[in-house]
Structures are given as C-alpha cells and as structure tokens.
C-alpha cells in the first residue's frame, strides 16, 4: 500500500488492483493505474479487452469484485455514479444516445442545474441559474461548432455531431476529470484532426482526460501517455512513441485489429 502511495503522488486518479468478472469471464484483471492531470492519457486495446468495464468501475456503474479507487486522495470505490459525478468525474458513453426527446440546447441545460424538487423550482435561484447555464452552454456549443444545431433534437443529429454533443453535454457539469469512451468512433476521417484539437483545448482548459479509442493514429496523435489493455490486464504503458515501437503491443493489439 505504501509503495502505491509513493508512486501515485501527484496522481489525480489511482486504481489499486481492480478486479471484475462477469460469470467466468474476467473483464478486468488486477488493474492498477495512475492518472496525472497534466497529460492526456489514453487506454487502448482490442475488442473485449475490458476498457469500457474499467470506465464503468471508475464511474460507479459497476462494482469491482476487489480493488479500490482513489480520486483526489479520497476513496471513491463503491460510490454511486451520481456521487462520483458530483465529485467532478464526468464520462461519455460508447453508444451516444443521450436524451432523445430533447433538443441539443435543452440537453445542455440538464447538467449543473439544481435537480431537487424544491431547490430546482425556487424562483430567484432558478432564474439566475438558467441564465448562467445558458451562457455556459452557448460558449461550449460555440467552441465545438455546434451552435447552429442547438434547436435540433438530439436523435436527429448526425453520428459525428452526436459524439460532439455528448462531449459538450458532459462539459456542462464542469468536471475535473473527463473519461471519453471512443470519441472518434463514427466521426468522419476528415474531421478527426479537428477533434484532436478540440480535445487538446479541453485539456488545456484544466480538465484531466482519459480517452479510450480504437483509432490508433488518432490516439497516438492526441495522447501524451498510453496504457494498453488486453484480456483485462494492462500489458504495456508508455509514451505514444514507446507504444508504437513496442513489439508486444504490435503483436497483441495491431495483430488482432488488422
């Protein structure tokens, strides 16, 4: 334990020996990793490697069979998703469904608002809050180039825009750490470099980032540090250059992917 504490000094998020099995299928096998806010971290690995399950455990959607998670030095393992969200950890989902009955702009107003019956309806606070959220939503949509789509129902957005809308919506809660599950999936190849720029902007604005993606050139371009996962284990980690050069990664990851 002391050893872990030493290595994780400065880490925003640390997982300690996470383990999760579904029936006999081990999805996450003894995963310990540290996430530092000053670099964009990526998590890659073949289909079924356990990447999404790891996100689900970190954000409280799945309970690990064993292991623990610390965020900002506090244990968050076992907390409910809404509690973890309120501590400043946001995430996107691999399948971007969002709130299908809402327009993009409306779905932006969900996060950051007072949700409870009473506080959510008190006049002055509600009004001031609405104004504040409108401003924040406008800035974010503007920045992501979605401002012209604000009256479009979420379920009518094109696949790529939907991914961005997902990102925009999660930014509304002003997270300290954002976990992105395959942000480049469904985005047309010509727009990937702009997506990289946007992600770097988000990181520069002070939000720690961890990204899962299958698009290797995108990941190696945008990330500063990469973890490679296969069969539930972290099998390698390093800078994008090191990862690209690693024979093991070539074999396990690209071999399967090709």
């Amino acid at each position: 334990m002391t050893a872990t504490d030493k290595t994780s000094s400065g880490a925003m998020l640390s997982t300690h020996g996470l383990y999760k099995a579904f029936g006999g299928n081990v999805a996450v096998h003894d995963v310990s990793l540290d996430l530092y806010p000053d670099r964009i971290t990526a998590l890659i690995g073949p289909n079924g490697a356990g990447k999404t399950t790891l996100f689900n455990i970190i954000t409280g959607y799945e309970r690990p069979d064993s292991g623990d998670i610390t965020f900002d030095g506090n244990r968050v393992g076992g907390m409910a998703p809404w509690q973890i969200s309120r501590r400043g950890v946001a995430r996107t989902f691999q399948t971007p469904v969002g709130f299908p009955t809402m327009t993009l702009w409306e779905s932006m107003q969900v996060a950051g608002a007072s949700h409870a019956v009473l506080t959510g309806m008190l006049t002055t606070r509600g009004r001031r809050e609405t104004a504040k959220l409108s401003r924040r939503a406008d800035e974010i949509l503007d920045h992501l180039g979605l401002d012209k789509l604000l009256d479009t129902p979420v379920d009518e957005l094109a696949a790529g825009d939907r991914k961005l809308a997902e990102l925009a919506r999660q930014l509304m809660s002003q997270p300290r750490l954002l976990l992105l599950d395959e942000p480049a999936a469904g985005v047309n190849p010509g727009a990937i470099s702009r997506l990289s720029d946007l992600i770097r902007d988000v990181h520069r604005s002070g939000i720690a980032l961890m990204i899962i993606d299958h698009n290797l050139s995108f990941v190696l371009d945008v990330a500063d540090y990469v973890h490679v996962m296969a069969n539930g284990r972290i099998i390698a980690e390093g800078t994008p250059e090191e990862i690209a050069a690693s024979p093991l990664v070539r074999q396990v990851y690209m071999g399967v992917d090709a």
């Binding site: 309120r86 469904v97 969002g98 009955t101 809402m102 409306e106 969900v110 007072s114 959510g120 999660q170």
Partner: peptide, 20 residues
C-alpha cells in the same frame, strides 16, 4: 432544472446519473 432532470432520467438513466 427539476423538470429537465425528470425528463433526462426518463430518457436515459445512465447519462442522467453521469450528470450528477
């Protein structure tokens, strides 16, 4: 905000949770 939270939770519970 309460009304929007209601509809959000009806539309997509996991995402609603992820927004706190």
């Amino acid at each position: 905000g309460y009304g929007r939270a209601l509809r959000a939770m009806r539309d997509n519970e996991p995402v609603a949770l992820s927004l706190g």
